[in-house]
């Protein structure tokens, strides 16, 4: 269960940095980021757990089906916020 723990830590660190550096994110950027992070967490949890369950096939597909949307959401949040902040 190292992946989900790592993701939890990364999530907390990222949010803390955003707050400390007073990065002004729009509400929809927060929403996209939270959804993306949640999906990434679920993907990591299901992947790690499925490996422990001796189900590598299920692990791969769960990572794929949950991880890709997670990356899309996180990417969108990053793209929108960085474009807006640079403008």
């Amino acid at each position: 269960m190292l992946f989900p723990t790592l993701l939890l830590i990364i999530g907390v660190v990222v949010v803390t940095m955003l707050i400390v550096k007073k990065v002004n994110l729009k509400w929809y950027e927060w929403l996209l980021g939270i959804i993306g992070w949640f999906l990434a967490y679920v993907a990591a949890q299901n992947y790690s757990a499925s490996i422990l369950e001796v189900e590598p096939r299920a692990a791969g597909y769960l990572l794929l089906f949950l991880g890709v949307p997670a990356l899309i959401f996180l990417g969108l949040a990053w793209f929108l916020s960085s474009r807006r902040l640079q403008a």
Binding site: L2, P56, R57, A59, G60, L64, G67, V68
Partner: peptide
């Protein structure tokens, strides 16, 4: 296949497999 070696896993998962296959090292 039902039980994958890491190599097979890379092949099946493509790019995502790179991230996924780090799991075994960490575990």
């Amino acid at each position: 296949p039902e039980n994958l070696t890491r190599r097979e896993f890379f092949k099946e998962m493509g790019v995502l497999g790179t991230a996924a296959a780090t799991g075994p090292f960490l575990l």
